[in-house]
């Protein structure tokens, strides 16, 4: 094995690095396993349990893709990536896809040569304060000390927000979310700012969550979603439409409980096309007819995944808000399965 690695290095050292195998689906099938880049640990989105089994909102996307492409939601190798290593891991082919609460931005999409495949969570930067401060709006935060993670877009958003509103603040730079919790609880800062989902998760861990409030202002747009490399449109389609299948399933009322029933055929052609009893959408993707059925059965539809990992019944307790179906006043919307 060592020998082949070394010879391979020698022969291919001169080749351009961009020649990552074009047919990712074939690679994944040959490997029998999907390499999915996730966060090294983010509450509700990706975390290993005591047995080392990963679960979470982002993890569920990986599992659905594995179920669709390989037929087994557990056939995923999770590669924990940090904020620094995630893009290289994807670009170099170490992972087949990235589902790591990554904000879809212009430069990441265009300059870094990735394809974002939709949005599985609409986030935005918010503020958390102690209730006894008596502040009800972020516009009253003039002169506050703010705990802020350095080197992130939140830092820039914060500066913009205070500048636009003609206020001043004193930053308390911190490195990780865990450190921020300690600093905020110790009173080192009046305000903690990060993505609203992170704030909710953080607040849920406090011994006295009722004494802390998240202010209504959301000062940035953070659409989070899965992404793949440029250059393999078939693979991009598979991941994109797997995510869309989860979303569409919620819209049409397909759940993990009734999917077996519905897969026998319904009088709704859209559901039939989704579940493969009508048309040949699976073949167009290079998969079999039941790809979407398996993806939905992996962890339920979008709404079920949301409720199980970060919804109001969990300790994190996020409301659907922007992440409700478009029919419910949210932004979650799948193009038609036709």
């Amino acid at each position: 094995m060592k020998k082949s690695v070394f010879l391979g290095t020698l022969t291919a050292a001169g080749l351009a690095a961009g020649v990552v195998g074009a047919a990712t689906l074939d690679d994944v099938k040959a490997r029998g396993e999907l390499n999915c880049g996730v966060s090294t640990g983010l509450v509700g989105f990706a975390a290993p349990d005591a047995n080392g089994v990963w679960s979470g909102f982002d993890v569920a996307v990986c599992r659905a893709v594995a179920a669709a492409a390989l037929g087994d939601p557990m056939a995923v190798k999770f590669v924990p990536t940090t904020g620094q290593t995630r893009f290289t891991a994807l670009a170099s082919g170490e992972v087949d896809m990235l589902a790591r609460n990554t904000t879809w931005t212009f430069s990441r999409d265009v300059d870094l040569k990735f394809t974002f495949l939709g949005v599985n969570y609409y986030d935005g930067q918010g503020f958390m304060i102690r209730k006894d401060m008596g502040v009800t709006s972020a516009k009253e935060l003039d002169g506050a000390t703010v705990c802020i993670q350095t080197g992130t877009t939140t830092e820039l958003n914060l500066a913009d927000f205070f500048k636009v509103n003609g206020m001043s603040y004193e930053p308390v730079p911190i490195e990780t979310n865990a450190e921020a919790q300690q600093q905020y609880l110790a009173g080192a800062c009046d305000v903690y700012t990060t993505d609203a989902s992170g704030l909710a998760a953080t607040r849920a861990t406090f011994a006295d969550p009722e004494n802390h409030a998240i202010l209504p202002e959301i000062v940035s747009k953070e659409p989070l979603g899965p992404l793949v490399r440029h250059g393999d449109d078939q693979w991009a389609d598979i991941v994109r439409w797997t995510l869309n299948a989860l979303i569409a399933a919620e819209e049409y009322g397909v759940t993990s409980a009734n999917i077996e029933e519905l897969a026998k055929g319904t009088n709704n052609p859209e559901i039939n096309r989704l579940l493969g009893t009508e048309g040949d959408l699976g073949a167009m993707l290079g998969l079999d007819a039941e790809w979407a059925k398996r993806a939905i059965m992996a962890g339920g539809n979008y709404g079920e995944i949301f409720a199980a990992n970060i919804g109001e019944a969990t300790p994190i307790g996020l409301a659907r808000g922007l992440n409700a179906q478009w029919t419910q006043g949210g932004l979650i919307y799948s193009p038609p399965f036709r």
Partner: peptide, 19 residues
């Protein structure tokens, strides 16, 4: 831990990431 390997510090982050 900075390159995503789960040494004790990395695992402490991962453990803290469970609900």
């Amino acid at each position: 831990v900075f390159i995503g390997l789960l040494d004790p510090i990395g695992l402490s982050n991962a453990i803290r990431a469970t609900t």
